[in-house]
Design a protein around this nucleic acid. Structure first.
Lengths: 310, 310
DNA sequence: CGTGGCAATATCTCTGAGGTATCGCCAGCA
DNA sequence: TGCTGGCGATACCTCAGAGATATTGCCACG
């Protein structure tokens, strides 16, 4: 059975007349009679009653037509859906990101992308840098925001673009003696209880802090440890000590805290956007387009690294 | 686009290999390649990624395949549903009947038919004899149980078969003086308050009662009037008077009442099964088959009146 | 008893689905 | 680096069947 048979049966049921139905289908009457006859033979039941008053579906015909109409609707929808998926209007984007990316680049990009592609399902996975690359290579993510470029087995199959530099800044309670200073020196920091992020997931951050403070053990003596930047800011606000974190923290202003530069300026690994070099889904391409529009300088770097329509 | 394209795309997605997919479809590989290429051109998007590892759907392909599978399921179901409808296994039966038919022939027939055709939807309409025939002719009913054969315009297009004779009996409270009698005479009835059914809908019953009681006015002096036999029996049970109704009342035994014959025996119009002479739905044919099996003598009359498979 | 409208049948045509043979491409390999 | 094998695409042919035209058969009309 072919879709043609369904279309012909539906047209015949609508027109209730072989000649008119054939005309609307753009064919002559005899082929329509033949196709309907073939259909009835294949189904094994008479589908239409041919009366003087017109052609009407039998009980079997009604049952058949209900299914036929749904099948034709599905076929029409198949083309539409495929087109929308090909243009990246529907689908999903699985994005891995480090927690601090939620502060600065993500809100703007996500809200813009959400407005441009309302029917794309976003799957956001907060994860450490070290877990993103394997997930990308395994096809479990479409794109990731990490600290520093991807490393490890298969990283050569990934493309990465820096989307922002970063360095260590301090966050203190407004009531803190350092709050009024434009910057805080290392010596001043050494005299304070410090609040830093837990180091297991992001060793590069810990290494930067060690470089800054001149310690060489993995533990930062006497420091409070938090799992994410919001907690660091919260602890600093409560006066527990001086928080240290990425400059991207400034994107989370909060009454009662002040952000201060730290001297010497200590770089943190770049925030990097990475994805597989090939097999880009239309949604991923649309997402990269959004980033291009949102951050022109990142867009330029993107254009250098991926060929259009690859 | 034809169903063939959907089947080929689904097979290709399952086999992930043009050669194997073509083999399962019973065709050679080149035609499959061509049909898939035609499909992709018509849809306007690449549906499969041809890689060294195998052939896999793109995002557009996944969207297309989801619809394609549903369309193919609908097409398969269309044939199955049409077959079941043609055999009368599904569908509906619109049955008009007078209330008293619920006492005797209907319960047995309906329960048997419900067991034989569990997926047929029964639409039961209690209605007076006078309304059944127009409803049958207008195509609003498939079959009707009436008192006496159909009359009126178009009645010649109906077939009717008597399914039972009937006559007037009395129903009295067990405490009533007549309760012990095998039969009650007309003279005895005339001395009692009588309970009869309302006459507007079934004039033939009223006429029979007039014939029995020898009155010629349309009103039965001093009688209580009920709209259905259950009410007649209930009123009789409460001692209001002597109920008169069809002998089919005996099928509704109730503690506290007795049924008695009435002399002289007064016939009521036959209970008649009627339906249109042509355009029988498969469900109606199945229903008539059930009646044939349930009541052999009615079956014989049916066989006389309708030709098989008409 | 024509007559007109409609679906079915007969017959032909030509499109296009499917077959065979072959090519082009690339990964794996010596 | 050329060789080879596997796979999909291409080229070309064949014939089944979708569709066109002409005609028939069959009632409900006048």
């Amino acid at each position: 059975m072919e879709a043609r048979h369904l279309r012909y049966a539906v047209a015949l049921a609508e027109q209730e007349h072989f000649g008119r139905a054939a005309a609307t289908l753009g064919i002559a009457q005899p082929p329509l009679s033949k196709q309907i006859a073939d259909l009835e033979r294949e189904v094994g039941a008479r589908l239409f009653d041919r009366t003087r008053q017109g052609v009407f579906p039998t009980a079997a015909g009604e049952a058949f037509l209900a299914r036929a109409r749904r099948a034709l609707d599905e076929i029409a929808a198949a083309t539409v859906d495929a087109g929308r998926a090909a243009r990246g209007e529907t689908g999903r984007l699985r994005l891995g990101f480090i927690a601090s990316a939620l502060l600065d680049p993500l809100p703007g990009v996500l809200s813009r992308f959400g407005r441009e592609r309302p029917d794309v399902r976003m799957e956001l996975h907060e994860m450490a840098t070290s877990r993103s690359s394997p997930a990308l290579i395994a096809g479990e993510l479409d794109v990731a925001l990490t600290l520093g470029p991807p490393r490890g087995a298969g990283a050569e199959h990934l493309v990465s673009v820096p989307v922002g530099t970063d360095h260590v800044i301090a966050v203190v309670s407004s009531a803190h003696p350092y709050a009024g200073q434009p910057s805080i020196s290392v010596d001043q920091l050494r005299q304070q209880p410090l609040i830093v992020s837990a180091g297991e997931d992001e060793p590069a951050v810990v290494a930067a802090l060690h470089a800054l403070l001149g310690t060489d053990s993995t533990a930062l003596g006497g420091a409070a440890v938090a799992r994410d930047v919001h907690t660091i800011i919260g602890l600093a606000a409560s006066g527990v000590g001086v928080g240290l974190g990425p400059s991207r923290m400034r994107a989370a202003p909060r009454p009662g805290v002040r952000f201060c530069e730290v001297t010497p300026r200590t770089p943190l690994p770049d925030l990097v956007l990475s994805f597989t070099a090939r097999d880009h889904t239309p949604v991923l391409r649309a997402f990269l387009d959004t980033i291009r529009k949102n951050c022109p300088e990142v867009g330029a770097a993107l254009n250098d690294r991926i060929r259009p329509r690859s």
